[in-house]
């Protein structure tokens, strides 16, 4: 008798809610993960070539950085709304908006990462007969990875939070649950979706940190003896 009551009394924490709406919560979580993953991956695929282009042709630096910064200034709700005539009520709208935001962070970090590659290292590789493609793949990208990954982590965490705004077009993952719960002041649903959203951000950040350590083992080896 006491268990179903927490839905009736509208408690903040309700085990009955988590039990009966498990499917709904899982679907929202999966949509959230899908939108975030698609956005960050697309942004990464666009950002790295853009950064390489800017590095090769410095005269593109001003327009590319200026445009991404300008896009970054537009508030999220306005960004999604401005894309409405082009995409309608679709997940593509949300993903496009999030890609535009993530681009700003990723282009800057990719550029900073590439700039951090020591010139001696680059010259040594050239001296060893590395062509520019092999130089990029085997020397520059691995050395740029720590800074690039810092950008990926930052972009991922903020994209997870921003995805909730996608609920304005019904494609906001956990944000949809928050929006649906508002008219009835359904506390358990708002709290559960909010907590899941923060947990998702923390877990994604830790997973990316783990991935970064796996991809750049030399960083850990070099810093470990120094105690930090």
């Amino acid at each position: 008798m006491s268990a179903p009551n927490c839905l009736v009394t509208n408690d903040w924490i309700c085990g009955e809610y988590l039990r009966t709406r498990r499917g709904e919560l899982t679907d929202a979580l999966l949509q959230h993960v899908g939108i975030t993953a698609a956005s960050v991956l697309i942004a990464l695929v666009v950002a790295v070539p853009l950064a390489l282009l800017v590095r090769a042709r410095p005269r593109f630096a001003g327009p590319v950085l200026g445009l991404t910064t300008l896009l970054y200034t537009i508030p999220s709700l306005a960004m999604f709304s401005l894309l409405l005539p082009f995409f309608g009520l679709s997940a593509a709208l949300v993903v496009t908006g999030l890609v535009l935001y993530a681009l700003t962070i990723l282009v800057r970090n990719a550029l900073a990462g590439l700039a951090a590659v020591p010139a001696e290292t680059r010259e040594a590789a050239r001296g060893m007969g590395y062509g520019s493609l092999r130089l990029l793949w085997a020397v520059e990208l691995p050395l740029a990875l720590p800074v690039l990954m810092a950008g990926v982590r930052m972009a991922t965490v903020s994209t997870i939070a921003l995805t909730t705004i996608g609920s304005v077009v019904g494609r906001g993952g956990l944000g949809n649950l928050i929006e649906d719960a508002l008219p009835t002041f359904f506390k358990a649903q708002v709290l559960a979706a909010s907590v899941l959203c923060v947990l998702l951000a923390v877990v994604a950040d830790l997973l990316l940190l783990g991935l970064q350590r796996l991809l750049t083992p030399w960083v850990r080896i070099r810093t470990a003896p120094g105690g930090g």
Partner: peptide, 22 residues
Amino acid sequence: SNVGRAVPVFAVLALFMVSPLR
């Protein structure tokens, strides 16, 4: 800053709006 980035403002506003603060 890191904490702020992970917490959606929409969630915080919604939590306020289902509490007596509304």
